[in-house]
Design a binder for these strands. Structure first.
Lengths: 416, 416
DNA sequence: TTAGTTTGTGCGACGTCCATACAAAACCCG
DNA sequence: CGGGTTTTGTATGGACGTCGCACAAACTAA
């Protein structure tokens, strides 16, 4: 109904604003369901068939939509409509730097993963430069695939494990990586011939992924915990990612849950991260750092042992669940969300955690009597952040379709 | 830049949408500063002088703007502009039900309080009906004043001490009042000849008041604590009031700060409210319930004793400050706000609290090193909620000016 | 085959903003 | 004191986008 985000930076509107808005409306309408005819879209959006025709024409020219045969119709009278669905030619590249791996993925508008690669490397005490070089090599491979299949890239985004300034794309501080003040987006962009690159926190992007194609589809308010070595959270409010004033919000990993506990990387005592992180769980289960390194994938090792009935591991997991529940409870009390999603390493480990999280929430959440806050398990687990990075770009394509013209339009316009 | 709240419910745009948006843009531009000429507004918004002229004409017809002589100009060449400022003829009515008083206020668009009244009554064990009757009587008096001065009412809103469903205007649960499930907005509306009435939580509205004309002007992200008998909080995010999925958000009063503490009205143990509320502070300072009742205004009594150097009171206040700081810290960690505002009875009591709140925040807020979170003292104190109720309506007039035509336009259109 | 229904497109009308031109009202300066 | 300059507010024609309507195409039902 209203315009803009009712907040203070109002922006003047004119006819092109209208056009752009309606391009977005039509595209999102088609994205949010089964293939549909122009006429149905018109009926659903309130636009005229004529206007929808015009808008769809432009979207097809932009390679965002395509006509795929006829609308499936159950013997109703009248001329059949031509089904419209999202094009599979526009893709986005997602990158991820984590403590013990690098990852890349290419996803198209329809949500299909077209390419995916993940390499294990210990980035913990490596300086940023070689790590970014390796990441850029992965990105280049992905772009080669994109080119070979005749796809169009809408942009690149990178997920980072730490405090990120989303506007500038700078990694401000990553305790578990030992990095600080690295202009990651800029660095990557310059090595990829100036392609636009965005950067964001891994937990934010994991939340985005779950909302885009995961367990949180259709949920407008939820918290997604993303634990690897560190523990972060992405918060969705009103269908959009919530970032604080400076991007320091949702630092769930550094909520105090055990004042008499261990020293955290951040300098404080008893942070949630000292109990719930992947390595914290292992350490508390009596698995030495050496054993962890040998196992390569710590989460898989934990799952293996838990499945075998290892008492120490199961106890450590249960404890982690309880601590997590305590931490989440204050967040749920303040944000009043509909659901909590357990992601990252908590995905695979969920079977030994969920019950404890549930219980802690039930006890501590004020409104638990009225509005049950669901506990969901991530669909993508450790792969959520990369996919979220791709989704970041894809989502903005749906919301602001006209921007793709400014990226690749110069070529296209000469053709048409 | 983008349209709509990027979220999922997209809405088609057309020319009237543009017009409405620009009406809002012009009005808010003029509202957000000193009186200005059409030409300046044009330069600031990016609209043409011609377009601004047309928009301003419509806004003047709606009685939202007025021309007030000439623009103050410091000897610059050129024809002087006609200064435009907010009309003082459009007002809104704010109402408030609290535990020990009822209040009404009439405020105009420019932020002037045109009428104000507050009556002390113990509503604690009174049934809703007589209380609402008394409130409606206050509202009627206010409307009489509005009529007598030739003003136009844009709407009525009421502040309530408890969980409120803002859409339906229902008071779901007010522990300190002993009410639950009362359709307050509807009840008041029906007794005021069907005038539209909105209802919201007192803390939300207090936050709104501080943002509208108080200490939080210009702050887009802040938390406003509002303590009377109970303790609530209103949260501003991105220049807008944040309500959770169900309106249960920001229940700061029921965060656990002292697991071995007192039993709270809500049934839990050691809630913040058992230490920080007006009566809790008094009780912990050794002031009996009888003495409190005799004093009528508990806050004033506390201030009196603190000024006289009453050790018990000062200690209780300091303790409240510390508890508040602890509770606020988790909120600040999650919301990453720029400031915290102490409101309600905490306004007058601030001198004996602020230092403790500050200290607790400094220790417990993760990002306190980077982004200092200011602690501000409310400008309106206990009067914030009523003023916020009026501001709720006034704000929506600024954002959606065309709606006033639907309220009182039928008369006006016949005239013009 | 014919009538009825639905789809997609073309055309004129309307509303809104932009660019431009112009009169009015001040200041500046010789 | 009067002309030139600058700025303001308004009026006019053009561009753009949606709406309403009409029409041909394509299918179902009888």
């Amino acid at each position: 109904m209203s315009f803009e985000r009712a907040g203070h930076p109002p922006f003047r509107a004119d006819q092109t604003t209208v056009r752009r808005a309606n391009l977005g409306v039509v595209l999102q309408q088609i994205a949010g369901g089964a293939p549909r005819s122009r006429a149905r879209v018109a009926a659903e959006t309130g636009l005229t068939r004529g206007t929808v025709s015009s808008l769809v024409g432009e979207l097809i020219d932009l390679d965002l939509l395509r006509e795929t045969g006829e609308d499936q119709r159950s013997g109703r009278a009248g001329r059949p409509g031509l089904a419209l669905e999202l094009s599979d030619r526009v893709v986005a590249v997602g990158l991820e730097v984590n403590v013990d791996y690098l990852a890349v993925c290419v996803e198209d508008l329809a949500g299909n993963v077209r390419y995916e690669k993940r390499v294990h490397t210990d980035n913990r005490r490596t300086s940023p430069r070689p790590v970014l070089n390796r990441l850029v090599r992965l990105a280049r491979e992905a772009e080669a695939v994109i080119g070979a299949e005749g796809l169009v890239s809408a942009g690149v985004a990178v997920a980072l494990p730490g405090l990120v300034s989303a506007e500038s794309g700078t990694l401000l501080r990553a305790p578990n990586l030992g990095w600080s003040g690295i202009p990651v987006a800029e660095e990557i962009s310059s090595r990829l011939d100036g392609v636009a690159v965005r950067a964001d926190n891994e937990a934010n992007l994991a939340a985005l992924a779950e909302h885009w194609q995961g367990v949180a589809r259709g949920l407008d308010n939820f918290i997604c915990v993303f634990a690897e070595v560190g523990v972060g959270a992405g918060i969705f409010i009103g269908g959009d990612l919530f970032r604080g004033s400076h991007g320091f919000g949702a630092e769930l990993g550094h909520i105090t849950v055990d004042p008499g506990g261990l020293l955290c990387q951040c300098g404080a005592i008893g942070c949630l991260e000292t109990i719930v992180g992947q390595e914290a769980i292992a350490r508390r289960a009596g698995i030495s750092d050496d054993d962890q390194r040998r196992a390569r994938n710590v989460t898989r090792e934990l799952v293996r042992r838990a499945e075998q009935g290892d008492g120490e591991v199961i106890a450590s997991l249960s404890e982690a669940g309880r601590a997590l529940g305590i931490g989440l409870a204050s967040a749920v009390n303040l944000f009043d969300v509909d659901a909590v999603v357990l992601g990252g390493c908590l995905g695979p480990l969920a079977p030994w955690l969920v019950a404890d999280v549930h219980e802690a929430l039930a006890v501590r959440v004020l409104s638990s009597g009225w509005s049950g806050c669901e506990v969901l398990v991530s669909k993508f687990g450790e792969g959520a952040a990369v996919r979220g990075a791709a989704a970041l770009t894809l989502r903005s394509v749906l919301a602001e379709p006209w921007l793709v013209a400014e990226r690749n339009g110069s070529v296209r316009e000469r053709v048409s």
